[in-house]
């Protein structure tokens, strides 16, 4: 039996050297350790071994069996590692610099910037409301103190409709409704699309966006307006900005101002964005005219308010780098699609 076992070990060692693959290894395992394997076949022989040799033969059998088992395990481990090594070496080198399709579309540049601006206002406790695009003459003009003879009411300036209404010429058309709705503690912005009957070119559109806001409370002052606008614009431009007021005239505010922002791109030295002047005219604003407050049922002696507009399309052009305002109302995906979800 001893000879048989030693012969088995010898045979096994010989054959192990020929194992090249995992299936070779499996075959070898079956051949020696399987139900009909060489070692398994030897096991019954132990019964016939004389008692005094049983212990020795049993140990030898175990030793051979363990040797076969361990050698096979070791071989399989080696083969597995080699297999992985082979996989790595035969892998295709992936060019990660190849272009990918994000599969995303795009938000309109106005929407992207509108959200930015609205978030600034919301962070300051404002509500965002909306208005109609078709408005009555009363809301668009009378309710915001535009005299009946004002040139803005001419057909040449305003898109009048066949039913006597107008395409709203300014977001202020919503002021009356907004002031009535929010009353004496109003902090509201109302973005909207406005229309003017004018010829379209790279710098002018008959359809454009404005964002307007009102603050009403006791004793709102010009100093408050300046503070607020400066803070708001600093957030919008993401840096501390300097602002200045100049006299303006709007029927719905008194006093009225034009608010300029010191050009955040050149610091006031003059650049193409600010047209060389160092200042960007961006926010018509003022203290709400007492007639406008009265028409909304607010006591203009007790309460005051400020109203401000944002030349929103101008802001969009500045921030998006577009140079032709007509793109904003076009379906030109070659220009619009690259905006994706941010500017």
């Amino acid at each position: 039996m001893k000879q048989t076992l030693e012969q088995i070990k010898k045979d096994f060692n010989l054959e192990l050297g020929n194992v090249k693959t995992l299936s070779d290894a499996e075959n070898l395992r079956v051949k020696f350790l399987g139900k009909k394997g060489a070692i398994t076949a030897v096991m019954p022989m132990l019964r016939d071994v004389p008692a005094e040799q049983k212990r020795e033969m049993g140990m030898l059998l175990n030793e051979v069996k363990n040797h076969v088992q361990n050698s096979l395990d070791e071989k399989i481990k080696q083969l597995n590692e080699q297999e992985i090594e082979n996989q790595i070496n035969s892998a295709e080198k992936i060019d990660i610099t190849m272009p990918v399709n994000l599969g995303v579309g795009s938000l309109h540049p106005r929407t992207i910037i509108q959200k930015e601006v609205e978030d600034v206002f919301i962070s300051m406790g404002f509500v965002v409301d909306t208005g109609n695009e078709v408005e009555t003459e009363f809301n668009n003009f009378d309710a915001v103190n535009v005299p009946s003879s004002h040139p803005a009411r001419d057909v040449q300036d305003t898109f009048w409709l066949t039913n006597g209404e107008v395409l709203k010429t300014h977001t202020s058309a919503a002021q009356n409704r907004i002031l009535k709705k929010y009353g004496t503690n109003a902090r509201v912005i109302f973005p909207g699309r406005c229309f003017r009957n004018e010829a379209v070119d790279a710098g002018h559109e008959n359809t454009f966006f404005q964002i307007e806001g009102v603050i009403v409370n006791e004793n709102v002052s010009v100093a408050n307006l300046i503070y607020f606008m400066k803070e708001m614009l600093s957030k919008v431009f993401k840096k501390e900005v300097e602002v200045r007021l100049r006299p303006g005239f709007f029927p719905f505010t008194e006093p009225s101002f034009e608010m300029d922002v010191k050009c955040p791109f050149c610091g006031g030295k003059g650049c193409p964005t600010c047209g060389g002047s160092g200042w960007i005219e961006l926010c018509p604003c003022g203290m709400i005219h007492p007639n406008v407050l009265k028409m909304a049922g607010i006591d203009s002696n007790k309460y005051s308010g400020c109203a401000f507009g944002l030349g929103f399309d101008r802001l969009v052009m500045i921030k998006s780098g577009l140079n032709d305002i007509r793109v904003l109302n076009s379906g030109n995906l070659k220009i619009l699609k690259p905006f994706k979800l941010n500017i």
């Binding site: 579309g105 309109h108 929407t111 699309r193 229309f195 359809t207 109302n329 379906g331 995906l333 619009l336």
Partner: peptide
């Protein structure tokens, strides 16, 4: 999808 703004 790309968002657009068209005239009225």
């Amino acid at each position: 999808v790309s968002e657009v703004h068209s005239h009225i």
